[in-house]
Design a binder for these strands. Sequence first.
DNA 1: TCAAAAGTGTTGTCCTTACACCCATGT
DNA 2: ACATGGGTGTAAGGACAACACTTTTGA
Lengths: 234, 234
Amino acid sequence: MQIKHYSHQNRMLVAIDCIIFGFDGLHLRLLLIKRGFEPEKGRWSLMGGFVHADESFDNAAARILKQLTSLDNVYLEQLYAFGNPHRDPVERTASITYFSLIDINQYEKQISHEYHAEWFHLKKIPSLIFDHKEMIKMAKGKLRYKAAFHPVLFELLPNKFTLPQMQNLYEDVYESVIDKRNFSRKILSTGLLIKQNHKDRESSKKGAYYYKLDKRKYMRNFNAFLNFIPNHKI
Amino acid sequence: MQIKHYSHQNRMLVAIDCIIFGFDGLHLRLLLIKRGFEPEKGRWSLMGGFVHADESFDNAAARILKQLTSLDNVYLEQLYAFGNPHRDPVERTASITYFSLIDINQYEKQISHEYHAEWFHLKKIPSLIFDHKEMIKMAKGKLRYKAAFHPVLFELLPNKFTLPQMQNLYEDVYESVIDKRNFSRKILSTGLLIKQNHKDRESSKKGAYYYKLDKRKYMRNFNAFLNFIPNHKI
DNA sequence: TCAAAAGTGTTGTCCTTACACCCATGT
DNA sequence: ACATGGGTGTAAGGACAACACTTTTGA
């Protein structure tokens, strides 16, 4: 006998919420939108949406991210499934959260104004709906954890970037000060950076050399362990 | 206006599946059951069940684990949400997987025969339903990742254990051979072990000293980074 | 007395850290 | 000329990895 349904079981809505990080050259930032429907319409929220009937979670997350940013092929990784029965007061809704790292400059080119999105400094996150604050906290933890061993923060950097910019990024992620001599030695020792022969002349008088990521090596070595952060705690 | 439902959205079943690891003193093992209902009745499967209407995912996982093992307070951590639309052929069912580490001796005392459960050696996993093989693969990866930096494998060990037993466990998890001198130095340097003054005389002639875990230090230091495995790859 | 597993120490290498000065440029 | 941030080298200490012999005891 062919079974058609699991009877008497509870079905629920499943949504995706995206925790979207960006980096503006000085600080790590988080992209939030103004919620466009009830309840809580008009309050700040993570970008999200319901999973469609014939869509995997990964596809739903990519679709939702693209809706907001118009970007394809960005770094997107499942973070955690939030399933508290009353997290959405309207109706039981599970949220599968995804963690995204995007190049803020790519975003700026493609910006959609439909969602009233803004980049927030991580120290200045406004009040958010539901359990979104908890989601962000977990995403920050995961970013630290991952970046301590994998070169994942390159996903946040533009095509060309300088070592001082990179150091700003690491210092912001770990909320700590890093010695620039040790930092540059460690980063360069990965062999992932290709020095360019021109400088960024905007952020200092002397100018800092641009580097590009060696994409081939990056792909190959992504899962190798690195150890970027001295004395890091999670 | 009070909203009662999100209209026109797709609702789905949400299930929990538990990847349950144990350690018998020599080898890492995985607990599987014989599925008790259609479809795929009688085939090997992870222990699972549907999330009830008013139950969080964590609570559902703990309930389902207890159903099989009769154990409370075991190590249980969310692993990943599997959401492929056709992963269950009957009806769309998301699976939130949980990763569990239990002391196999506790389990043996409490065994429930209702599910025809068996412990499988990780090299000899039988054919499994749906995407359960993929779940196990991910769980193995996470176990390695986590155990490389956190003392989580203690969850698999009985109250009293010997260093050779512990080393067997680490060697099994990482499928590699570890130098016992370096291993004991590293493990003991954590300060987490309390040497007992009697020996296990069963597994060797000379006998190996028992140790107990210093639970207080274990709790306090769980999130500190360790580095147990030389040259480990994920 | 022999076999089998437990237990223990040393050394060289490499990685990590701490630290200070010179350079290039715009104002 | 000076202030600002960029770029580089060295030395000391600690962690890690490689390695071999002695001990205990049951058979």
